[in-house]
Amino acid sequence: MIVGEQKPFDEIWDMVKGHKQLTVFGCNTCVSVCHQGGNKEAEILASLLRMRASQEDVEIEISDGGIERQCEHPFFDKVQETLRKSEAILSLACGIGVQFTAQKYMSTPVYPALNTTFLGDVPAEGFFTEKCQACGDCILGITGGVCPVSRCCKRLFNGPCGGSSDGKCEISKDVDCAWQLVVDRLEALGKLDDYEKITPIKDWSKDRAGGPRSFKLEDF
């Protein structure tokens, strides 16, 4: 899931206060799970912005709306009219949604209300952690299902560095050493022999090094 965090309120206000009309536009899939960019959050943000506007004596008409996903054309059908009439759009989607919306409405400014932070999971209620870098060449099969690309601070492929102590990373006591987790897991699987195998140099051209990536289904 894509995780995002709402930008500071003042930053959002500074972006949009120059407009006469604004649509606060939620995206109800990934970023609604972390309670940052869903349609409900759009409603709340719109209300807060209206309060700020009335206090600062700024004439701005703020409405709210939202769809299930801002990264696919069909979802936009029911809001086509509203968005076309908007002077500006404040999108609560991830970076993908903001760009998709901006591309659809060429002459309408689209502002991001979120900082898109990472691809992560939900290990506990209200808690999100980074798990994947979308590097394009998955090695989880040999690392016991623990990703060293996203969870090792140095992205090491052949065991931990010297900074690993008591299973924790040297950058912080709150960060697990990814290689400790790999070893624990391989041990539980009875596959510690895999740990001894040297991982060849990774092909980073499948990561961002090869430019923006795309994928097309042959049938379409």
Binding site: K40, E43, I44, S47, L48, R50, M51, S54
Partner: peptide, 10 residues
């Protein structure tokens, strides 16, 4: 709902 409260203050 949070929105009800905010609307009241608004």
């Amino acid at each position: 709902d949070q929105v009800y409260i905010l609307r009241a203050f608004e």
